[in-house]
Design a protein around this nucleic acid. Structure first.
Lengths: 244, 244
DNA sequence: CGATCACTTGATGAGTCTCAACGTGGGTGG
DNA sequence: CCACCCACGTTGAGACTCATCAAGTGATCG
């Protein structure tokens, strides 16, 4: 391997399919057109008609929707190894905004790049399709949380899911992880007020379950948190390879 | 055209792309392996590993997730012209259940059928990809509703969205539509208790906005409802063709 | 060194849930 | 054919979760 360290996307896909040398090479080629973007400036505006998608290489990104009354609902966070704006490319328009939370690094991917890569290595296409389907499953799980979990379970579930996702790209463990999100981010993602988020975090911390402080998430009682959240990582694991 | 009436899927896709004779023929061929299923018996169980997908031809279907504590969250309803279990096929497992609400008619579609159809008519592939992306956009909008809309707006938005979807397949209009859902269905979809659903419906009815009664949804004041729900059908319209 | 941002805490109230009834129609079995 | 039952709908009272308003802290930064 050329690189000292594989890209997060490679790492993630490798956890699920054994990729050949060729496939790895094609994957790395997709990472060529590297760009960086600074925090806070929208990558994609809600309503914009957009052309390119990106593979996130470093940093955190948030996808959100703003309503007419000004409230914001965060649909998902993206972490290294995730795709950005894939649906915007397909629909040739974006119904949501995409904003870097910190300074990020991302590789621009054109529709044509993707097509070509798929033509060369169909297995890779399948692997990426898997990744996209998994994203969809995460959105569904998020929806379930908003509809049928109370604030505590919602928070617990969210922090656990993020932990699993980060672990897949080597940025987290059962101990915890670094997390640049503010309590306002959590509020907008979980459909709560920032004030209530604060109280929930305090409760979880004082209950000895998890600590969210100064950019660090620490799991104090992983099992307890799993129980509280009714967390079943099946929809993320997907360790059963779907390739023939 | 052979058929007196085009299938709902054909109707839906036609609203967005002008399909050639060939494409129409391929589309009709996908509807060959027709089956019917009775209400209440799961088509796909949560946790099952499933092989086939379906195109819904007649009837209503619900996709849901059951939690450990027994509460149910409905992710989406499918109406004629919608795909069922496409993601289950891709992931080779199902993280959610699929249940017919009434007696339904559906055409079984194997992965191989789909691949072959796509090989014959790439434009059709694009059209179907559009339909799938639109479904995704609907789930996202549903998520936003759960997170950031109060019960009244949630209900209003839901009834309006369903109206637009049904209109696309000729089963509804600005006047209203037939709807076999119970108040319990609404409750599980909107993250409310059935009791509160009842109250909300009464409020909307007495406010002269919309009537949900005995299997019939009637829009009494469409504009008023749109205003209450902050409903923007942009994510459904997609009238801008994405084909070259 | 004032400003701003992220966080924190308390008090109050709205929105929604839960529990507990009761109504009503269509189906089923005796 | 009647009596019953069950699913669905309706209504009221009280409790609880979470939002809102108000205020204040401590860091970071131009």
């Amino acid at each position: 391997m050329m690189n000292i360290k594989a890209s997060p996307l490679t790492q993630k896909l490798s956890a699920f399919v054994a990729l050949s040398e060729t496939e790895l090479a094609v994957l790395e080629r997709l990472h060529q057109r590297r760009k960086s973007f600074s925090a806070g400036r929208d990558l994609v505006h809600q309503g914009q008609s957009e052309q390119a998608a990106y593979i996130l290489a470093a940093g955190w990104v948030v996808s959100y929707k703003i309503q007419a009354d000004g409230t914001r609902q965060i649909v998902d966070f993206q972490i290294p190894g995730d795709f950005l704006g894939l649906r915007s490319v397909l629909l040739h328009t974006s119904d949501h905004g995409i904003e870097p939370i910190v300074e990020i690094e991302a590789a621009e991917v054109l529709g044509s790049d993707l097509l070509q890569a798929f033509a060369e290595t169909p297995r890779l296409a399948t692997a990426i399709l898997w990744a996209v389907s998994r994203d969809e499953a995460m959105v569904v799980e998020h929806l379930v949380g908003l509809g049928r979990r109370d604030a505590d379970a919602r928070m617990a579930h969210f922090l656990l899911e993020l932990g699993v996702r980060l672990s897949l790209v080597g940025m987290g463990s059962r101990q915890g992880y670094a997390c640049p999100l503010t309590q306002y981010h959590l509020a907008d993602a979980l459909g709560l007020s920032a004030i209530h988020v604060n109280r929930v975090l305090r409760k979880l911390r004082e209950g000895g379950l998890v600590t969210f402080q100064s950019g660090l998430v620490t799991f104090d009682d992983y099992e307890g948190l799993v129980a509280l959240a009714d967390f079943d990582p099946a929809y993320l694991d997907q360790s059963r390879p779907l390739l023939p």
